[in-house]
Amino acid sequence: MAKLQKSIDKRNALVKATIELVNNNGFHATPMSKIAKMAKVSPATIYLYFENKQDLLNQTYIDVKAEYTKYAFETYDSSMSVAYGFEIIWKRISNFKLNECEEAMFLAQCDNTPIIDEAIRQEGIKHLQPLLDLWERGKKEGIIKPISDYLLYAYAINPLSFLMMTQNRGSFKLTKENIEEAFQAAWSSIKLCK
């Protein structure tokens, strides 16, 4: 059992080092040797867990995406109204992005660059299924604009990444009031006006 935990700890250290180095240096300036050094393992140890650097990046992306979506949907129930369900999910996502900055920044980089394999990116999208299902129900009920889920995500969720980056740079401090205003703006951008 101790051997298994040690193995899990090493893999987790590699993932954590990958996130930190990619956030600080970018994908291309993050060699495997630096990842191993930061994780305090030998470079050969990486290959016990990952096939190569691309596999390490892909698996780190999926791990972080799973953590992110587990948090986002933890208090959501599909029986909630569309408006309330969206508010619950949106506020959980904002909380994650503003409090788990390292992971959120890593996801933002992965989502906005071609470094992650397309098949892995599609697998990552599957983790958002409860949100996509909510939007589909909202479209059928005439509550959400009948537009592409990519557009809905771009207008309702992606601005949180901008706010996270702005806060991380110290340019803007988000308050409860700002977060509520941002939620109202996000909801207004996707709800169907009647």
Rank of each mutant, 00 (worst) to 15 (best):
Y49W: 08
A119E: 09
K194W: 08
R137P: 00
Y150R: 15
A186C: 06
N178C: 14
K191Y: 10
S79Y: 10
P114W: 05
P43H: 02
I157N: 12
D55S: 02
I8G: 06
A156G: 12
G124C: 06
M105C: 14
E118L: 07
F172L: 11
L128Y: 15
N99C: 02
K173G: 14
K53V: 01
W135I: 12
K97D: 01
G85D: 04
D9C: 00
Q167L: 04
N158M: 09
L134N: 03
N158K: 11
I116K: 03
R169Q: 14
S94V: 09
V15P: 02
A44P: 01
W90Y: 14
I8L: 10
K37E: 14
P146N: 14
A66R: 08
V15A: 00
R92Q: 09
E181N: 15
A186G: 04
D149A: 15
L48V: 07
Y155L: 14
I179W: 09
K191T: 12
S171Q: 11
Q184V: 12
Q54C: 08
G138H: 09
K37I: 12
N58I: 00
Q122P: 01
F50S: 04
K65H: 03
Y68V: 02
A44D: 06
I19D: 01
Q54V: 07
K140E: 14
T113G: 08
A36G: 00
A29Q: 07
T18Y: 04
P159M: 13
F86P: 13
N58W: 00
G26E: 01
T30K: 03
L192R: 06
Y71R: 04
A2E: 05
V64I: 03
M80L: 05
I115Y: 10
N158V: 08
N52L: 01
V64Q: 00
Q184R: 15
R169C: 12
L56I: 00
N168W: 13
N168Y: 13
F183Y: 15
P43K: 05
A2I: 09
S81K: 06
K194M: 07
G170V: 02
N112E: 08
K176W: 11
S33R: 13
L192D: 11
F96W: 03
I19L: 02
V64R: 02
A36E: 00
V41D: 00
I116G: 04
E136I: 14
I19N: 01
K91F: 14
